[in-house]
Nucleic acid binder design. Structure first.
Lengths: 254, 254
DNA sequence: TAGTGGTCTAGACCACGAA
DNA sequence: TCGTGGTCTAGACCACTAT
């Protein structure tokens, strides 16, 4: 008796903390500004560091913060709008398509890719690695898979440097009949994480594209976008323009 | 001296644990099967429960597991392919479009929505809440914002039940000129989480759609998809078919 | 070398679902 | 009521970056 229900909190501390921090970011910090370190912040809010970190993790997931080991936690700029498609149905690597080719190897496709291409389980495919940079920052890496049957004119014994251009050149000879995309959430593998300047396991948006030609899937691409910094746009009438960040207590993401 | 570098581990325990569990899920468990509880699993692997949970969290993020408080951890089925667009450019709510209308209110649009619509900051808009169910499971909730100027013929003083249908009916009178989409990662607000049968903060894919008519943005929708269970498909030539789960050590996501 | 975020531990208690 | 996952604590040590 006598214990009045002063607060029907039931809201987890880290959740409340997150909204408090979110509001503080809008009103008291500039983009790029560095926050106090985690130990200080935790002490200031009277919670354990792990609890504080739970709030920071969510804010980073939503693109509000950027944390770097050895450096600190900074206020992130609004997410970049990244045009993903449909880009008037052109082959990858044609003209200026925002991607930079890194290299190409011939290797057996992993099972999931073989399923996409409809090839046999142990068939080798040309695998072109590319990366996409926006505003000086790497935002995506991609593996483009091209089965040999899609590039019949490819001469054997190419130098590594000539491999990727030759595959793309042959691929462009086909008539592209359409493309197909899927987006899902994933976590960065070690290799991709390194290229994206993130830690392994960082959340990424995985974009899977199928390119159709000759009534088949002539090529497939698996692109890995940084989920914290990117907003993928699928423009019919042009991409959604990036606006300046707006304080918005109702927000789910930037 | 004497201390040979036996293992250049450097790989975090939870990361290694994740790959071990991932492989075990492929080889030793069926979809829907329930895993041992977290305390037992942690003991079995000789780690603290928090560390084990770090691995489980990632696997859940990647759609491999489903955890429910009071119940347990189960092996998740492969993600559902959910067609998002372009659906031959039709207005939402026209014909059978996979969504179920829940209700409609007239309220001031949050800042981010006002920016999408190009309306003033304190203008009220019709706000239709809808939900999308697939295979008996709610996969998305949506708020569809329609400024009054887009539905000029709407009669005032509608009963709550008649509100949403009336707004949609008026909206369909306009000629739809195009649509525009963006996808980004977010975390579920309390309200959405409840509707999606998830905890607040659960990872979601936020799809923002702009509908163009009369040279303006005539309506906008913000849809919130469960990131753990959904793969969003943007089909030109049809959505990517769901295939059965394939063991694939190279995976990033299902 | 100092300071940051990242990992890990060994507990405790709470909220929820099912029996 | 019991077992589950969810939250929280107060530490410790490690890996990385900048100086």
């Amino acid at each position: 008796m006598g214990t009045t229900q002063l607060e029907a909190v039931q809201e987890p501390k880290y959740w409340h903390l997150k909204t408090v921090l979110n509001d503080a970011l809008d009103s008291e910090f500039e983009v790029g500004e560095i926050l106090p370190n985690e130990r200080d912040l935790a002490a200031r809010f009277g919670v354990a560091r792990a609890t504080l970190r739970q709030a920071l993790e969510q804010l980073e997931l939503e693109g509000r913060l950027q944390r770097r080991r050895g450096v600190g936690t900074t206020v992130a700029p609004p997410r970049m709008g990244v045009a993903v498609g449909p880009s008037s149905d052109v082959w990858p690597g044609a003209g200026r398509d925002a991607w930079r080719t890194i290299g190409c190897v011939e290797a057996v496709a992993p099972g999931s890719v073989a399923a996409l291409l409809g090839t046999g389980p142990d068939e080798t495919v040309h695998t072109i690695r590319r990366e996409r940079v926006m505003q000086g920052q790497p935002v995506a890496t991609e593996l483009l898979y091209v089965p040999p049957v899609s590039v019949p004119g490819l001469s054997a014994m190419l130098s590594p440097a000539a491999h990727a251009p030759a595959v793309l050149r042959e691929l462009h000879l086909l008539e592209l009949e359409g493309e197909d995309r899927a987006v899902e959430l994933g976590s960065a593998r070690a290799e991709d994480a390194k290229q994206l300047d993130r830690l392994p396991g960082a959340p990424v948006l995985v974009v899977t594209t199928r390119y159709f030609a000759q009534g088949r899937v002539a090529a497939a691409a698996v692109a890995t976008y940084r989920a914290d910094t990117c907003r993928l746009t699928f423009g019919h009438s042009g991409a959604i323009e990036v606006t300046h960040h707006q304080p918005d207590s109702d927000r789910q993401a930037s």
